[in-house]
Computed example of a mutant assay.
Amino acid sequence: MNREFCEGRRLAPMKRLVQAIWPDHSYENWRLYCFTDQASAQAFLDHFPGGMFDPKRDRENGNARGVWRRTGEYKRILDLGPLSVPEILRN
């Protein structure tokens, strides 16, 4: 689905993984789609749910191997667009 979206707009994002960690020590691995310009990233975000990630701000002072220190309370993502966690796997 996101491949068709990107190919149709001639976007070629790089994909990266980052570990997101909350203050209560909960964590998840997140897939990032990295675009060369803000407008492309915003077009992707307008079409798919998610959030903006700034590696210089969000990844331990820009450390390439750093984690994403999240703030607030951890809330598990159970539904994301057409994908969802089956009921049997939910808490």
Results as ranks from 00 to 15, higher is better:
R59I: 14
M1A: 15
H25M: 05
H25P: 01
S84V: 06
P55E: 01
D24P: 02
I88E: 13
G72E: 09
D79M: 09
H47E: 08
R31Y: 13
F53W: 12
E28Y: 01
S40D: 05
F44K: 02
N61S: 13
G8S: 13
E87D: 14
D37Y: 05
G72Y: 06
F53P: 05
G62C: 11
I21Y: 02
Q38L: 07
Q38V: 12
K56F: 12
P23H: 02
D24S: 07
A41T: 04
K75E: 14
F48V: 06
L83E: 11
L80G: 04
D54P: 08
D24F: 02
W22R: 00
M52D: 09
N91A: 06
D58L: 07
N61Q: 11
R16G: 01
R76P: 04
Y27L: 02
A20I: 07
K56Y: 10
R65D: 14
E7Q: 13
V85P: 01
N29M: 09
R9C: 06
K56L: 13
C6I: 08
N29V: 08
L89P: 09
G51W: 10
I77V: 15
R3E: 11
R9N: 10
S40Y: 00
V85F: 03
T71S: 11
L89A: 11
R16N: 11
A20T: 10
N29L: 12
A39E: 15
R65N: 15
A20S: 07
D58Y: 13
L80M: 15
F48G: 00
D58Q: 06
E60C: 05
K56E: 13
E60G: 04
D46S: 09
N2E: 15
L45T: 04
N61H: 15
V85M: 09
P86F: 00
R10P: 02
R10V: 03
K15Y: 10
Y27W: 07
P13T: 05
G62R: 05
L78G: 05
F35D: 03
M52I: 14
P23Y: 03
R10N: 13
D46G: 01
V18Q: 03
D58C: 09
C34E: 14
G72W: 11
W22S: 00
I77Y: 04
R31Q: 15
D58N: 15
E60L: 04
P23S: 02
L17I: 05
P82L: 05
N2L: 09
G66A: 06
R69Y: 02
P49S: 10
F48C: 00
E28K: 13
P13Y: 05
L11R: 00
K56M: 13
L11N: 02
P55T: 06
F53Q: 02
P49V: 11
L45V: 06
V85G: 00
F5R: 00
L89T: 12
D58R: 00
N29W: 14
D79Q: 15
Y74N: 05
G50W: 03
D54V: 08
W30N: 06
Q42N: 11
D37K: 02
A39Y: 10
L80P: 03
N91I: 10
D46Q: 09
H47I: 02
L32G: 04
W68E: 03
E73N: 07
W68D: 04
Q38R: 10
L45D: 01
N2W: 14
E87M: 01
A41Y: 03
I88Y: 04
R16L: 09
R16E: 14
C34A: 07
G66L: 04
Y27S: 12
T36D: 15
G51M: 10
R3H: 12
V67S: 13
E7K: 12
